[in-house]
Design a protein around this nucleic acid. Structure first.
Lengths: 298, 298
DNA sequence: GCATATCAATCATAAAAAGCGATGGACTTG
DNA sequence: CAAGTCCATCGCTTTTTATGATTGATATGC
């Protein structure tokens, strides 16, 4: 029952639908008409449906036939993608491109490059991984991702090649109901120390990312949106990317916090495009890297 | 190049990936191991890629192989859907179910039924048509749609079977800047007459739907959202389904208009599930109709 | 209206493809 | 180290598929 369907049958079916006759389909496929006729006969027989109404001069698709032709097109498109991936590999493309992207990184600046990527390599499977902080680096190192778009704090590791792309300005914020919101002046370490800081941290190695930690008590989060929930409810303070909190600050849901001698650079944290040095990029990865640098590195 | 790929090759490939060895795949597929071996060999040969690393005791998928196995699963799923549709037809199901739905009809009450439909008939292709007012009736009559979810004004035509499902309360509204908004009392026909009424009408037969027309000057629209643009900008007045304007009225973007002797029934316009009498419903259509009546007809 | 061309179904036959079974070299397991 | 399992290869058989000719039906051109 299942298992006897053939791609060839579907190709023949679609070709008949496109050309309008069995004979024409035969010519187009380089086969004699009787072969076409038999192929469709077996297809109809096995599937137990009638695809064409043969009462007239030319065969007419039945209602069922019309629907199944559309389904067949989907199957063939899917098969073509299979062959497309294989062809890409044959021509030296990597079989897939995995991009690790940090949660702090804004998506918008990358859309253009990624859209161009998908046009240049239409059959390349692309996937994204967003783990917590430090996740990108881990994916790069175990070769699960070819390219990382990530922070590299405190500095670029030796085994990683990285190109700066853009900077994300950070803004310390707190909910309006929080004591720090009523401070009314620049906050000193003494001010911050007693309050809970909501820290984004590496889920695997929670001790690693202590950059910018000022409070004695930290609550650690892996994902940004959950941390935001706690932030908004007044649980503690933290630094957030400006692009994510600008609206909330305007709406009054969050209040900016000015910190004395803030170690976070004024001009923002640098977002890098990175890849593992010992794992050379494939064609598509190299293309994306070049395109990103061209578009973003000013 | 293209055209020699076989579903059977993909089935074999996926089976190997699932079972972990050529021999096991052979057992599972009821074939001898050498057949499996040859199938994969030709697949690799034709596609020009290496799928397995045979250096060890068991064959290991290469990176390319891993990606292509996933692609192959997609192709097979697509092929299974093809066979699923065919099986449905074989068992008496209609090949597809087209539902014509009027623009005024709220979507929310139908989601449950349609979700149940897709669970009951997972391979049934379902599509929706929303034309202007009267479009549903036209689709039903020329058998382009099996079921219509629509208004039937002024009454149910003879060639249509219709079951009332729910009622949509209508609310005459106007933008706050419009003269009628400042009337401050129930509007009489004399009040309405000089102002432009924004009428939803049948794009094919513009004269047909004059139900509820009160103004001398009408602007006719086919789709609801465009009419809403004109309404919001203060161009004229019209009746809108309550569920669509409730928020806008609350926000002050629209003002309710009370009309003397409004011919629109207080309890709302009736939404029917309808089908053409001379075109009996298929199994799935009948099922949906019954389910809709069961869930909605109170 | 008649001749001619084109259409699809059918059948016997030829060609191609796919599966089978046996064999051999490689690796695992106990 | 022996027994068991793995995959590649090969000759052979079976099955599948395409071909080419024929027939009956429908369209097209004169």
């Amino acid at each position: 029952m299942i298992g006897s369907l053939t791609l060839d049958q579907l190709r023949v079916l679609v070709t008949i639908a496109d050309t309008g006759s069995f004979s024409a389909a035969g010519r187009k496929l380089g086969r004699v008409q009787s072969a076409i006729s038999q192929t469709i006969a077996t297809l109809e027989d096995i599937q137990g449906v009638s695809l064409f109404d043969r009462s007239g001069y030319r065969p007419l698709l039945t209602d069922t036939g019309r629907v199944l032709v559309e389904q067949a097109r989907l199957v063939l498109a899917s098969a073509a993608k299979f062959e497309g991936v294989a062809m890409g590999v044959r021509q030296g493309l990597e079989p897939e491109l995995v991009i690790a992207i940090d949660p702090l990184v804004p998506t918008a600046p990358f859309i253009e490059s990624l859209s161009a990527l998908s046009q240049t390599f239409p059959n390349l499977p692309v996937s994204f991984s967003t783990e917590g902080l430090g996740g990108s680096l881990r994916w790069l190192r175990r070769d699960s991702a070819a390219i990382g778009i990530c922070l590299l704090l405190p500095s670029i590791p030796d085994d990683i090649t990285a190109y700066p792309l853009l900077r994300v300005r950070m803004q310390a914020v707190v909910a309006p109901g929080h004591p720090l919101a009523k401070l009314g002046r620049t906050a000193t370490p003494i001010d911050l120390e007693p309050h809970v800081q909501l820290v984004l941290s590496d889920p695997i190695d929670p001790g690693s990312a202590n950059f910018g930690v000022s409070s004695a008590r930290c609550w650690r989060f892996v994902d940004l949106s959950r941390r935001l929930d706690f932030l908004l409810s007044g649980f503690g303070w933290c630094r957030m990317p400006e692009h994510l909190v600008a609206e909330l600050v305007t709406a009054g849901s969050l209040v900016p916090l000015h910190i004395e001698n803030d170690p976070t650079p004024e001009e923002g944290l640098t977002i890098y495009a990175a890849h593992a040095r010992n794992q050379p990029l494939g064609k598509a990865g190299q293309w994306l890297l070049d395109d990103l640098r061209r578009r973003l590195h000013s």
